[in-house]
Design a protein around this nucleic acid. Structure first.
Length: 439
DNA sequence: CGCGTTTGACCAGCGC
DNA sequence: GCGCTGGTCAAACGCG
């Protein structure tokens, strides 16, 4: 009997550990895979293995002879107990490893962000004029001062780099009018909050599964699009500032456009973390470029000699990702609806990354370390070159999008392979098909 | 009853 | 100044 009780305890502990792990690798339906198994198999919370132990011990508890007769079974139970203890230990160890990996990833991520921001600040073309041009737009949004949130997480470095303003979103929501202080030095944090990453993917579901929990807080009819735009905010942690907009493309309603904004202030499941880090990195790069020249236009970039040559060198470039500098918020759009075979396309495209990129843009240094031409660097060119010149980033972007995208594309549409182009892509004829702000 | 969604109202920025 | 638009809020509502 005691063994049975112990078994229940160990099974319970083990299941708890498993569930905790499965929280980070939940199925697409959103339910932990193993916990579902236990419910189905056992019919109650004890799980399948416990049933065996309980049946044996309770069924024979009144007869010593019967227990003795089941000596071999008891022996098996003891063996199973040890097995379970080992499993328990292994679960703990795996859990620990997962935590370690998560922390390492966070630290690395924050370090990358620090480096990118540092590079961004070293750009010689940052001038006061651009800052002034950014300031009004940045001050438009309701972002509270930093350091007021009670939600503290381990990833302090990352947060301090990314956006202090995101620490107190609830406060900002309550008193938006109190934070329109243009003199405050939170422009970078606010800008980070404003940077957006938009993902276009074929999806029949109302929303792609990206590993996060979202709560819908609004829906609006956007101009030029018969499909309503839904507004979601992350609910994985109290006060998480991340929001996303979901809208179907006006011209192709099978295309779901999801726009992410802000950075999470809490630990994320690996799948969601991949996305978050990707969007965060893209947003950071975007902002790094936006600080150099926010008023550049895609058309100009497209018509520029550099971009033209750029596009000539990248046959797939215009089909995957687009950057918008004309929108009120710097936005990068990843178009995952065009590539027939992502793996086949991404690789040659990446492989085709020409060293001459530095020749096309020979002088100006941009955040990603690529050299640009002598004329004023546009945000589009800046970020495009930054991202395209960094195969690792592109690959990470690709992998992340592929991994988190719970809604697979239908038909021949692949989902990976993100190439950044400087200029409005042909498949994005108007803004109704994107989630760019259209102020 | 708690939680999430819906939906009309409200606010701020921008263009004319 | 006014109207349009995007974004957000919050009461009402529905569901489990």
């Amino acid at each position: 009997m005691e063994i049975a009780l112990l078994d229940v305890g160990s099974f319970s502990r083990r299941r708890k550990a498993v569930e905790e792990v499965d929280f980070f690798s939940e199925s697409r339906s959103g339910r932990p895979v193993l916990s579902t198994k236990t419910e189905e198999a056992g019919g109650h919370d004890d799980g399948p293995g416990v049933d065996i132990g309980l049946n044996l011990s309770t069924g024979n508890s009144g007869s010593l002879l019967a227990v003795q007769g089941e000596g071999s079974n008891n022996h098996k139970l003891i063996g199973m107990k040890h097995e379970l203890e080992r499993s328990n230990e292994e679960n703990r160890r795996l859990r620990s490893m997962l935590d370690q990996a998560t922390k390492s990833y966070s630290a690395l991520h924050s370090h990358v962000l620090v480096l990118m921001q540092r590079q961004a600040h070293e750009i010689p073309e940052i001038n006061q004029k651009d800052k002034k041009m950014l300031a009004p737009a940045l001050a438009r949004r309701s972002i509270a001062p930093a350091g007021l949130s009670s939600v503290q997480e381990a990833d302090e470095a990352s947060r301090s780099v990314e956006e202090d303003g995101d620490r107190s979103p609830s406060l900002s929501n309550k008193s938006p009018k109190l934070v329109h202080d243009k003199s405050t030095d939170h422009s970078s944090e606010v800008a980070s909050r404003k940077a957006r990453v938009s993902v276009r993917a074929r999806c029949d579901a109302p929303m792609i599964s990206d590993g996060c929990q979202w709560r819908k807080y609004g829906q609006k009819m956007a101009k030029g699009n018969p499909c309503p735009r839904a507004y979601y905010r992350c609910t994985m942690a109290l006060g998480c500032p991340v929001r996303k907009q979901v809208q179907r493309c006006a011209e192709d309603k099978t295309i779901l456009i999801t726009t992410y904004e802000g950075n999470h202030n809490h630990p994320l499941p690996p799948a969601a973390a991949a996305l978050a880090s990707t969007t965060s990195a893209a947003a950071t790069m975007l902002l790094s470029g936006s600080t150099t020249s926010r008023d550049s236009h895609l058309a100009a970039a497209n018509s520029s000699a550099g971009s033209g040559a750029f596009l000539n060198h990248f046959p797939y470039a215009s089909t995957m990702a687009t950057l918008s500098a004309s929108a009120p918020f710097p936005t990068i759009t990843l178009d995952l609806t065009r590539t027939p075979n992502p793996y086949q396309r991404a690789q040659p495209a990446l492989g085709a990354l020409p060293a001459p990129l530095t020749v096309l843009y020979p002088h100006n240094k941009i955040p990603g370390g690529v050299q640009f031409g002598t004329r004023e660097t546009s945000v589009v060119e800046t970020v495009s070159a930054a991202i395209t010149s960094d195969p690792n980033f592109t690959a990470a972007l690709t992998a992340a999008i592929a991994s988190f995208m719970g809604c697979q594309q239908s038909g021949g549409g692949g989902s990976e392979g993100a190439i950044v182009t400087s200029g409005r892509s042909p498949q994005l004829p108007d803004q109704s098909c994107t989630t760019f702000s259209t102020n």
